[in-house]
């Protein structure tokens, strides 16, 4: 796969994402936010970090970076886009994904391992992962409290757009296992046409041998299966 990872001023997970894809044999590239050429990717990554210092609202200013227009065109034509953490915030601010990431209910920055449950295997990002599978993927954010209004939630549920929920070790979505107050324990969603993913947990931080969990690999493997089925 050709993977373009966008670097905004303040991104800090761009190199992590880049090296995971590069180590898996993909042609990964870092693209500066002022560029206007995505360089024909099969997948675009909006990485984690603090683009524009999180000024005004997280992700609100990144939306005006020149490359984001290209990302929006690419996504609207069906291109695969994955927004992780700050990338998820940027995707909601652009309107590519519904809802908003509000400040954590605890008002604290959280950085820890977190269990998430795969809600459906019907997406390029969860292909071949059995519904109900529990993955250990770290979270690190202060604004990850997913909110959407009641009508929006109905649409997400009806269209099967919720891909990941925070849960406990046994896959139960309890209040205790919800790290940030997200509505319905939502940790990640896709758009209606299922080519855009936004998730708060960091799969790129759990995809190499040197870290505690390797569960993030399941998501990259899913993308690879999806891509090879296309080719």
């Amino acid at each position: 796969m050709r993977v373009s990872v966008i670097t905004f001023p303040g991104s800090n997970c761009d190199h992590d994402a880049y090296s995971v894809f590069a180590s898996r044999g993909h042609q990964a590239k870092l693209i500066w936010h002022k560029d206007t050429d995505l360089e024909k990717p099969d997948l675009v990554i909006l990485p984690g970090g603090f683009s524009y210092g999180d000024y005004l609202r997280c992700g609100a200013l990144a939306r005006f970076s020149p490359i984001v227009k290209e990302v929006m065109d690419f996504a609207q034509k069906g291109g695969l886009v994955m927004g992780i953490c700050n990338g998820f915030q940027i995707l909601t601010e652009t309107g590519l994904l519904p809802g908003t990431l509000l400040m954590n209910e605890s008002l604290s920055f959280i950085c820890k391992h977190q269990y998430v449950r795969v809600e459906t295997s019907e997406s390029p990002f969860t292909m071949n992962i059995k519904t109900g599978t529990v993955l250990d993927i770290p979270v690190a954010h202060k604004e990850g409290n997913y909110f959407i209004d009641a009508d929006g939630l109905k649409v997400l549920e009806a269209e099967n757009q919720i891909l990941f929920k925070y849960c406990d070790l046994n896959g139960k979505t309890t209040i205790e296992s919800n790290p940030n107050g997200s509505l319905q324990n939502i940790a990640g969603i896709c758009n209606k046409t299922r080519n855009i993913l936004g998730m708060m947990p960091h799969p790129e931080r759990s995809a190499t041998d040197t870290v505690v969990s390797q569960d993030g690999r399941r998501i990259f493997e899913a993308l690879e299966s999806y891509y090879s089925a296309l080719a």
Partner: peptide, 10 residues
Amino acid sequence: ASVLDPQGKA
């Protein structure tokens, strides 16, 4: 009004 304000609550 329908959105919880954790800062306000604190």
